[in-house]
Design a protein around this nucleic acid. Structure first.
Lengths: 219, 219
DNA sequence: CGCTCGCGTATACAGTCGTCTACATTGGAG
DNA sequence: CTCCAATGTAGACGACTGTATACGCGAGCG
């Protein structure tokens, strides 16, 4: 058994990420998010402007990433990992069914408040010109939607709704919540209303689908 | 009464727009749409790349537009004018109520097929980094949504629905249709399904809102 | 100790950029 | 006819770009 002490590098641990002396990679990621939220799509950023924003020489970029494409994918991966399990926890938490929508929406919106740039950039790239980034983000949306569907069926959260129906409705719902995070970030005075409206939207969609099925208008 | 013959210029009429010899302005607009649909936001395009795409010297851009911002607004104005009246015509046309959603969705999707770049760019800029363009596009969405609300109420198209409820629901509906145009453009094999699903979405949302109101769950 | 690797910097180069200035052509008005 | 406006081109300039190459430093290993 090899007892090799790992080589220490400037790749920071999670704790270090919160320090101003974070490593080059993290500084470039933070710089990219900030610039993409303010200016242009991740893939339209410049290596030199990234370097300036990160307080690094532009060439340092190539020490960590082969391309802007690789940087972009790394960013999406980084932010997509925490959210889905937390949403699932809310849905399986025993919150009264009538409140699940509002609680979930609140959670997502507050998460967006903690990572505003990630959400801004996420929504932007979902509709951007890079098919690859779109697909990466859409895959995450599909995952959240699939879990949501499973949970709703498992808990009988919406009596009368079927897997087929959720197959149609889950993604538009997740997407709508995703979009509304930007409103939530931009309009602090309307926050309570946005939560209420978004929860209404979800509940109305589910309720209507069930009613339409009962009337044989869901084919 | 002054009988002044209007000065002829290279500003083309609508018929001329379809000729390869269209004027500089139209060529720049077409070039901008094409580039923005393929590459980057309108405001991130370059004057020289526009010139190249339009087959013009880059300086010609400044003969027609003060800035990329002005070009962008001109593009949005150009494409927003035809759609709203046509949608209204469908809603007021006497089509059976159960079919209005599908007919409207079909019309919008086919319109998008005739102007693919405009829709691609429209959705992109709706979520882009230019607050001004966002607002311009959102204003058009609000207009379509407001007219839709009026028409639904005037024709009693959705019995039980109120102006308050439509105030919440109309824009998400219009926005959803707008977004789905891109799927319609990108996935020809799924076109019938996309029409059906989008119409379902609209009908379910309305039906659900009415049912929730009847249950006193719409506050 | 010397060597290697990771990560940072500096310099350089060729290319591209926006925009300025000047010029040219055409059509229409007086 | 001359003059002016609209619209197009060419050349120039300073600034900026991505990326190649070289160098430097510190940590860790043998």
């Amino acid at each position: 058994m090899s007892l090799v002490k790992p080589r220490k590098s400037t790749r920071s641990t999670l704790a270090e990420r919160e320090l101003p002396e974070a490593g080059g990679r993290e500084r470039l990621i933070a710089a990219a998010l900030k610039l993409a939220a303010e200016k242009r799509s991740l893939l339209a950023l410049g290596v030199r402007e990234l370097g300036r924003m990160a307080g690094l020489n532009p060439n340092t970029f190539y020490r960590h990433f082969k391309s802007l494409d690789e940087l972009s994918v790394a960013i999406i991966d980084e932010f997509a990992q925490d959210l889905a399990p937390a949403l699932r926890a809310i849905r399986l938490s025993g919150v009264p069914v009538e409140l699940v929508s509002a609680r979930t929406v609140e959670y997502v919106f507050d998460y967006a408040r903690q990572h505003p740039e990630a959400f801004i950039v996420g929504v932007r790239e979902l509709h951007g010109s890079s098919g690859r980034l779109q697909q990466a983000i859409r895959a995450r949306i599909k995952l959240v939607a699939a879990e949501m569907s499973e949970d709703i069926l498992a808990t009988n959260g919406v009596p009368g709704i079927t897997a087929d129906m959720l197959d149609e409705l889950a993604e538009p719902i997740v997407e709508q919540v995703f979009h509304r995070t930007l409103d939530y970030l931009e309009e602090p005075r309307r926050r309570a209303e946005l939560v209420r409206r978004t929860a209404h939207f979800i509940d109305a969609l589910m309720t209507g689908a069930v009613a339409m099925k009962a009337m044989n208008r869901w084919d």
